[in-house]
Structures are given as structure tokens and as C-alpha cells.
Design a protein around this nucleic acid. Structure first.
Lengths: 191, 191
DNA sequence: GTCTATACGAAGATAGAC
DNA sequence: GTCTATCTTCGTATAGAC
């Protein structure tokens, strides 16, 4: 199965973007990290680096979304927050605060000449919000409120991961989560 | 006053980082944007690109902090949020969602070989939080809560700017701000 | 302070053989 | 699908003249 190296490249790109960003990650790095052969980059990705990045964004988006979906089956509203936050906590701590969110990294460096990247990123953020909102809905938060809360959660947690990387400490994330959980519980009870 | 081109380089670096990130911005671009002479880069910045970036982060941090300070003199708690958010709204809209926060950009791409950059970024985030927390305190929010709320505001607004860039729309920021304002007002009244 | 020239490696991308 | 060779442009950084 020769398509194996293709998948590894996408995964490696997502991994490396988290640490060094889009411009900071070259094919050189992706090849080295994935162990994929140099000669087949443009065979697998005729669209070059932009295509690779687009797929990496989607891959990361899908991957995390599955985690959120699995964890938002409960009826406790706060568990929806935990589901989303838990992943980032792990990423931050395991990488010793060297890694963050690849989707944020790509968004922040996106050019005009590659609008596919912002579009892919927007789709990922939307998907995360939808899944979270569904979880909040199951926990009793009214639909309209759930959508706005989900958006706040995504924004605040993504922002908090950046603060954590700067501080090399999880506390910003923990502080933010404490506020979010309180807010979420109140919203569920009032619904 | 020959130091003028030095300042312009720092400002240009901050400006360009917002759009293309740290790795995506070369000296080439900084020279072109600032109009500064090529030959004096390493005269002004012996530490090279890292030093330039460090100063750009500090410059952006100080600049925005002055804006927050000026706007948090009132007694309305929500105005402290507006002060911070207003700036990012302007940056996003005027750039047609091409520009974000340079401090976030640098943090997200920071290497192990230049820990000065994360440190400078952390100092900036802390300063913004402190100024915001003081504003919230003046509006009647208890000190401990004010600190946590300020941190949430910084994280959520920074995260929202990323969402706005992906969507090419201000709505994520507006949605997040609506929630933050409500939360802030409640905290001020309960204090 | 600013210039030119230059070093040297890496970037993304393409062509054509196998 | 993978290889090697190659193109062109760009990256940061340095040296030494002016």
C-alpha cells in the first residue's frame, strides 16, 4: 500500500505546523519527520505545499472532532468543555509547550494567494463549534445560546493555548476553563 | 536623526508579522515596507531577526496597552472589554481580515533557540491582563475575579481574531464580545 | 550609518529517467 | 511511485569599503 507515505506526510505536516507554523515548516522537515520519500511529493500533492497544508488542516480538524464527539455524549454540560480542553492540555504538556494548534498556525500565516487555507480552517472551526454546541444542547442549553457559547469556548481555548505557550505553563488554560465551566453550568441550569 | 529608520523597521516588522507571521516575513519585506536602508540592518540589530522580532513584540505590546489604559478610566465594566476589542476590530476590518495579532504570530512560531521571543510575548500578555484587570477593578469587580476575567478576555479575544481571519468576518468577535460583556457586567454587580 | 558584494544554505517546484 | 538532477528565488548573515 503505497498510499501509506502520503498519509504519513499529512500527519507529519499537521504535527510540524503545530510547532513551527506553516512558513517555518519545509518539505525537508516533512520528509525527515514522516520518513516518506522525497521523490513523490509532487506525485501525491500536485498542488504543492498549499495542498499538503490544506489536507493537514482537515486531518487535524477531523481528528479532534472525533474526540469531542465521543466526549459530548454525557448530560453534564461541563464535560463538553472538558472534551475540547483535554486534548489541548495534553498537546501542550507533552510537547513542553512547544506545540499548539495547527489550524491556528495556518490561519495566522495565510496568504491571499492561497485562500483555500483560510477556508479549510474556517470549516474546521465551524465543525468544532457545531459538535460542541450539540453537546451543550444535550446538556440542556438552549440552541441559540449553545451556538454562541460553543464559539466562545473555541475562541477562548485556542487563545489560552497561545498564552500557555508564551508562559510555558498550563495555568492560563486552567484559569480560562474555570470561567468557561461556570458559565456553561449556569447556562444549562437556566435552560 | 538617523535612529528614525530603526524605529520604522520595528514598526514595519510588527505590521508585517500580523499578516505573514514571523517566518513568513523576511528582511527583504521589512526593508521594502519601512523604506529603511538595507545596509544598516545589522548595525541597528546585531542580534539579527530575533532581536528585531523581540522589539516588534514589545512595541506592539506597549502600543496597545496605552490604548487600553486610556479607555479603562471609566466606571463601566463593559468599557474595559470594548477598549481591548475595539482595536482588534479595526485591525481586522481595515486589513480585510489579512492582519491579526503580531504577538500571537510570534508565539505560535517560536523556536527553542530563541526563548526571548516567548518571554517577550508572555510579558506583553501579562501587561494587557494587568491593565484590563485594573479597569475591571475600578468598575467594581473584586480583585481576584478581575484577574481571572482579564485573562479570559485576552484569551477569548485573541482566539476570536483568529476565527475572524479564517471566516473573513467580524461575527466571531462580536459573538464572543457579547458573552464577555454580559459576564463582566454580572461580575461587577455582584462585587 | 549606509553601501556593495558575497557567502551559503534552504526554499518550492519541475523534468525526465527508471 | 520513487529517483536524481536541476532551476530560481529567497533566506539570514558577514566583510570590508566609504
Amino acid at each position: 500500500m503505497g498510499t501509506d507515505s502520503r498519509e504519513r506526510m499529512v500527519r507529519s505536516a499537521a504535527y510540524l505546523f503545530r510547532e513551527r507554523g506553516y512558513s517555518g515548516t519545509g518539505f525537508r522537515d516533512v520528509i525527515a519527520h514522516s520518513g516518506a520519500p522525497r521523490g513523490s511529493i509532487y506525485h501525491h500533492f500536485p498542488g504543492g505545499k498549499v495542498q499538503l497544508a490544506e489536507e493537514a488542516v482537515r486531518y487535524a480538524g477531523e481528528f479532534l472532532n472525533m474526540g469531542i464527539e465521543a466526549a459530548t455524549q454525557g448530560e453534564d454540560a461541563a464535560s463538553a468543555v472538558d472534551a475540547f480542553v483535554g486534548w489541548w492540555r495534553q498537546v501542550l504538556i507533552r510537547s513542553e509547550f512547544r506545540a499548539g494548534c495547527p489550524v491556528v498556525a495556518v490561519t495566522v500565516e495565510s496568504h491571499d494567494d492561497a485562500p483555500q487555507l483560510s477556508k479549510a480552517a474556517a470549516a474546521v472551526f465551524d465543525r468544532w463549534e457545531d459538535t460542541l454546541a450539540t453537546g451543550l444542547g444535550n446538556a440542556g442549553v438552549p440552541d441559540e445560546r449553545a451556538a454562541r457559547l460553543a464559539r466562545l469556548i473555541v475562541a477562548a481555548v485556542e487563545g489560552a493555548t497561545v498564552l500557555c505557550r508564551a508562559h510555558r505553563d498550563v495555568r492560563p488554560l486552567d484559569d480560562v476553563v474555570a470561567e468557561l465551566k461556570e458559565l456553561t453550568r449556569a447556562a444549562a441550569e437556566s435552560g
